[in-house]
Design a protein around this nucleic acid. Structure first.
Lengths: 99, 99
DNA sequence: TCCATATTTCTAGAATACTCGAAATATTGA
DNA sequence: TCAATATTTCGAGTATTCTAGAAATATGGA
């Protein structure tokens, strides 16, 4: 993972609503959840949520598919793995790292 | 690691200058580097750097000790481990995770 | 004590991010 | 085609973060 991608992922996950959205989607993995269900669960207005879902999508952390009228969002857990790898390779010394 | 602590660490590392500072300090681990050397290496004004070092310090990602006139900053690599653990526990499904 | 060096704090302006009402778009079913 | 539902886009206001000049603080050496 490039530093610019890592920055995008870190920026996306560093916002409370987005982190909560992502965690929720991880628990709902691999089926995903429609935007409306996320908005209701987290008590966030639909348009505000849409803004954050877009942010996560641009950062590559979620993917989306349409199912009828609904947009189903799914966590891209592999991207978190890449982020963790980035942190391991760039932000850890050998001695301090388990992996 | 609590969600609020994780947010602080993610926020700190999601800013380009701070991420570069942290990576530099990891390479200089465990000795650390004086603020002036970091500023010079990254070509950032001393007071701007100070702002970001403060941010990293409040997030627990670096520690500092005085050595004569210099302030020596050191990466707290263990905190990155905690952040990775947080991501593993909260943001990964079992199937998607190596660990 | 006085000066030079290293760094931080103060401050205000600039840039970026977040929020949410209102309007627009997409889909389904009648 | 029309109404209802699900979601997104637009736009403007608010809040937060970043930047860097200037001044302040801390230390060591002459």
């Amino acid at each position: 993972m490039e530093i610019s991608e890592a920055l995008e992922a870190l920026t996306s996950l560093s916002q409370e609503i987005r982190l909560r959205v992502f965690r929720l989607l991880v628990t709902a993995s691999p089926h995903g959840l429609p935007a409306g269900a996320i908005a209701e669960e987290l008590a966030v207005p639909a348009n505000t949520l849409s803004f954050h879902l877009n942010h996560l999508r641009h950062a590559g952390l979620v993917s989306v598919r349409r199912q009828g009228r609904m947009q189903i969002y799914t966590a891209r857990c592999d991207q978190v793995e890449f982020l963790k790898d980035f942190l391991t390779e760039n932000c850890c010394t050998k001695s301090s790292c388990a992996s």
